[in-house]
Design a protein around this nucleic acid. Structure first.
Length: 433
RNA sequence: UCCGGAGUAGCUCAAUGGGUAGAGCGGGUGGCUGUUAACCACUAGGCUGGGGGUUCGAGUCCCUCCUCCGGAGCCA
C-alpha cells in the first residue's frame, strides 16, 4: 500500500509544470530587492524557491524580512526546470504558509567546533552531512537484516537486563533491579546459543553497553551490535558468513547510498575492492607480519588499533585474522584441536585503518571443557548453569560473531569518529542531549 | 588512570618581546529583479573558563582547579 500525503523534494523531477506544496524548513535565504530565494529542505533533499515581487501578494513577498533559518513553512508553487538552481529544479512560489518563525538558530552556515555541535546534536542532525550519515546507517541496518532474513536466519532478540557478565573481563553498567544487582547486556551471544538449539540459525540486533572508560574515536558506551549465531557451524563456515555479510553491506551501500556517499565525498574505489574471498591470516602469521614490519610485538599479546592497521595494510583490503592465543580470549571459545594454546576465534579487519568490525568464533560445545574454562576464568558455575545445560542436551558444534554497527557505518561513510554514526551518541563524557 | 593540546563576542578564530581586546559569520537597520555559505553600507554585542600570585600595567608570565578535544589502555 502506498500512502501519498504530500509532495517531497526528492520527487520534484517528476512534477515539472505542476503546482505542488512542499512542507519543510528554511535552510537558507538570499535576497536581492525585488526578488528573493528561499532554500527549503524537507528531509528528502533541498530545493530553491523563487519569490518574485508583483507575482505574489505583498504579505507573502514581505516574508523575506521575517523568515529565519530553520523556520517551518509550507511553500506552494509551480515546479520548473532551471539550470541556475542547484539540483536543476526550482519552485516558482505563489504562496507561503508559515508554521513557526525560528528564533536565533545556533548552527550557522559557517564552521563550528565539534564540542559545540555535539552540545547541539538535537539540531545538528538536521544538517545535510548528518542526514546523509544517518541515512547510510539506516540502509546498512536494512542490508544486515536483508542478508540474514533471506538466508534462513530467525531474528530473536535477547535481554538487555542480565544478571551476569558474559565475559567477566569487561566493565558493565550496573543498575538496581528491584533491590537486586543487574547489568546492562554487553552481548546477546549466550542467549543466541540457546536460541539456535530451537531455530538453527538466529540473530539478535540491539543496543549493547560497555562501561569501559575508553576515550577514543572508536568507542561508544552504548552501541548497536548485530550478532548471528549458527548451529552445526565450524570456524571456517563462520568466516564465510561474516564475509558474505560484509560483501552484502558494501554492495547495498554502493547501490542505494550513492547520493549520500557522494555528498560525504567518500572515495568509493576502496569499497569497490571489497570482494570475496577475503584474505585469511592466522594470529601467529599476523604476529610475524608485525615483527617483519619492525614492530616489537610478542606472540601472546592482543593487537591494538595500530597493529590492526599494519596487518590490514599488508593485505591491501579486508582481512580475517583467526586462531588467537586462548589466554586472551573469552571462556566460551573452543580450543583449536590441533594446538591447545589457540582458540578458534576470528576478527574481521576493515581496510583503510578502520580495524575490527567483527569479532567471533566457534564456541566450546563440550560440557566438561566448558566447565573447566569457566573455573579457569574464575566465573561462577551457578550463574552459568543454564548455559552449561545447552551442552548437556544435544550439544552441537556452533559458531557466531558480532558486528559493530557504528564502526561499519564509519567505515562505509569514511568518517574518522563514531560519534556521527548514531543519532545521539553515548560516550564517557557525553550523556546529553 | 597516564601523555599531549585547547578554553577570548552567540559561533569560528586573531591580538608582534607584558602596554587602550579585533575580524568574519550570526543578530539589528537600510540598499539591490537570478542569488549560489550572495553582495554593499551602517550598527549593537566582551568580568579573555574559575580562583590566587608576579608587575606601575596580564588575554599574554607563574601556581591551582574546572571543562572540552586528541592519543594510550580496554574492546565491536
Amino acid at each position: 500500500m502506498v500512502i501519498v500525503k504530500h509532495t517531497y523534494i526528492a520527487d520534484l523531477k517528476h512534477k515539472v509544470g505542476e503546482e505542488v506544496t512542499l512542507h519543510g524548513w528554511v535552510y537558507n535565504k538570499r535576497s536581492s530587492g525585488k526578488i528573493w530565494f528561499l532554500i527549503l529542505r524537507d528531509g528528502t533533499g533541498s530545493t530553491q524557491c523563487v519569490v518574485v515581487g508583483g507575482q505574489v501578494p505583498d504579505e507573502v513577498f514581505d516574508l523575506d524580512g521575517v523568515l529565519t533559518q530553520e523556520s517551518s513553512v509550507s511553500v506552494t508553487g509551480v515546479v520548473k526546470e532551471e539550470k541556475r538552481a542547484v539540483g536543476g529544479y526550482e519552485l516558482e512560489v505563489s504562496d507561503i504558509r508559515v508554521h513557526q518563525i525560528a528564533q536565533n538558530y545556533p548552527i550557522s552556515k559557517k564552521d563550528h567546533g565539534t564540542a559545540f555541535l555535539m552540545d547541539n546534536r538535537h539540531l545538528w542532525i538536521r544538517s545535510k552531512r548528518q542526514n546523509a550519515v544517518l541515512k547510510v546507517r539506516a540502509e546498512i541496518i536494512r542490508a544486515c537484516r536483508d542478508f540474514l532474513d533471506s538466508n534462513g536466519f530467525v531474528n530473536l532478540d535477547t535481554p538487555i537486563f542480565t544478571a551476569n557478565a558474559c565475559e567477566g573481563t569487561t566493565t558493565l553498567f550496573e543498575t538496581d533491579y528491584f533491590g537486586q544487582k543487574a547489568f546492562l547486556a554487553q552481548s546477546g551471544q549466550l542467549y543466541n546459543e540457546a536460541n539456535i538449539m530451537s531455530f538453527g540459525k538466529v540473530y539478535c540486533f540491539g543496543p549493547t553497553f560497555r562501561a569501559e572508560k575508553s576515550k577514543t574515536r572508536r568507542h561508544l558506551t552504548e552501541f548497536w551490535m548485530l550478532e548471528p549465531e549458527m548451529a552445526y557451524c565450524d570456524l571456517d563456515e563462520n568466516m564465510e558468513w561474516a564475509e558474505g555479510l560484509i560483501c552484502h553491506i558494501v554492495d547495498w551501500a554502493l547501490h542505494r547510498c550513492k547520493e549520500q556517499l557522494d555528498s560525504l565525498e567518500r572515495d568509493t574505489s576502496q569499497l569497490r575492492k571489497v570482494k570475496k574471498p577475503f584474505a585469511r591470516v592466522s594470529y601467529t602469521d599476523a604476529v610475524e607480519i608485525l615483527q617483519n614490519s619492525g614492530e616489537g610485538f610478542e606472540w601472546g599479546g592482543d593487537f591494538g588499533g595500530g597493529h590492526e592497521t599494519i596487518i590490514s595494510d599488508h593485505f591491501d583490503g579486508p582481512v580475517i585474522v583467526h586462531r588467537f592465543p586462548a589466554a586472551i580470549k573469552a571462556f566460551y571459545m573452543k580450543r583449536d584441536p590441533e594446538d591447545e594454546r589457540l582458540a578458534l576465534g576470528m576478527d574481521f579487519l576493515a581496510p583503510e585503518g578502520y580495524g575490527e568490525m567483527i569479532g567471533g568464533g566457534e564456541r566450546e560445545a563440550d560440557y566438561d571443557t566448558l566447565l573447566r574454562n569457566l573455573k579457569q576464568h574464575k566465573l561462577s558455575e551457578d550463574a552459568f548453569q543454564w548455559y552449561l545445560d545447552l551442552r548437556k542436551y544435544g550439544t552441537v558444534p556452533h559458531s557466531g560473531f558480532g558486528l559493530g554497527l557504528e564502526r561499519t557505518v564509519a567505515w562505509i561513510c569514511g568518517l574518522s569518529h563514531l560519534r556521527e554514526t548514531i543519532p545521539f551518541p553515548r560516550m564517557i563524557y557525553r550523556l546529553e542531549p
